[in-house]
């Protein structure tokens, strides 16, 4: 056991070292262009990380992979368009209303569609989330049409210079939001009674109910948090990604990959997975023929699964007999 842990530590350390070497090499060889890649990659990576956290919250409490996670972000983005771009509400008010609406939808869906499935296999629940994703996407298409929408950036100005790289001001909102979100989620699951109970509920429902957290409460809270987190993320990234009814699929796929790479169920893992994925993608797009850029994310996914299936920062799971 000890030997395997040590092995794992060496693996993760090695991966981290290799990644650092890649970053340094990029900076040395490409100079300010390399820095631009890394900064742009961090913006993209933070987007993936935010979505990945939503996957992690639901997975760590219920072991369900929520295929509708990307749709929460899509809904946040297009609602923001209606409230702020069309409805001319101030940004902060639009933000709050949009998050509240999507959170209510998330909690409502949990009660209506997920809770009745509590005694059934995880795969059945996953199929239900696929159904939810299809229905949410089609409803959004009915309401907002097929075109992407423009959401005004939170602050004005076209670009900000840091060192030799340029970023749109919205990138800094994304960084800041991702940082706050990961701290909050981490504290919730590791420092609060409810959060700890929820993790326990995923492992052993009976034991968790003894400390007062039923798997039913756990699932409701997880879905509420995931919807709030997903929609808020969708709003913050909306000025960059120009959301449309179909954006959720891409966000979900990349966010899921980031979550698996970092370790499904770990909030810091989601951030690490997202950033690694985003930066690697951008560097690849800069160096290799760009058509293969997306393959990097999925090669990394498979590689991580083969070498360290619990993800970079994940804990090895106990296998139930």
């Amino acid at each position: 056991m000890v030997g395997r842990d040590a092995d794992n530590r060496i693996l993760v350390g090695g991966a981290a070292a290799a990644f650092c070497v890649l970053i340094v090499a990029t900076l040395v060889v490409k100079g300010s262009t390399g820095l631009q890649w890394i900064m742009s990659g961090m913006t993209v990576g933070s987007i993936y990380a935010l979505i990945a956290m939503g996957f992690s919250v639901i997975y760590s409490s219920t072991h369900v992979i929520n295929f509708a996670q990307g749709e929460f972000s899509m809904l946040g983005g297009v609602l923001m368009f209606s409230l702020v771009t069309r409805g001319h509400l101030p940004t902060w008010l639009g933000f709050i209303i949009a998050v509240l609406i999507v959170t209510a939808i998330g909690a409502g869906l949990e009660r209506v569609a997920i809770r009745p499935m509590r005694n059934h296999s995880v795969i059945s629940v996953i199929i239900v989330t696929i159904g939810l994703a299809i229905a949410l996407r089609a409803t959004a298409k009915w309401i907002w049409g097929t075109d992407p929408v423009r959401v005004t950036a939170f602050s004005s100005g076209t670009r900000v210079k840091i060192l030799g790289a340029y970023l749109p001001p919205q990138s800094f909102w994304v960084f800041g939001f991702a940082a706050v979100a990961v701290v909050l989620v981490f504290l919730f699951f590791n420092r609060t009674l409810l959060g700890k109970g929820m993790r326990a509920a995923a492992m052993n429902p009976d034991a968790a109910s003894l400390v007062g957290v039923s798997s039913s409460t756990s699932s409701l809270v997880a879905w509420t948090i995931a919807a709030a987190l997903g929609s808020a993320a969708g709003i913050v990234i909306a000025p960059i990604i120009l959301p449309s009814f179909s954006s959720g699929a891409m966000l979900g796929l990349k966010g899921f990959s980031a979550a698996v790479v970092g370790g499904l169920g770990s909030a810091p893992g989601a951030v690490v997975g997202g950033l690694v994925l985003g930066v690697l993608e951008t560097i690849t797009a800069g160096v290799l023929p760009t058509g293969y850029k997306d393959a990097i994310a999925f090669l990394l996914l498979i590689l991580v699964l083969l070498v360290r299936p619990q993800g970079l920062l994940g804990r090895a799971e106990d296998v139930k007999v």
Partner: peptide, 14 residues
């Protein structure tokens, strides 16, 4: 090239 759902093309533009 870029993917239809990509959100950032700065790498290609550099």
């Amino acid at each position: 090239s870029y993917g239809s759902t990509d959100t950032d093309m700065t790498a290609q533009l550099t």
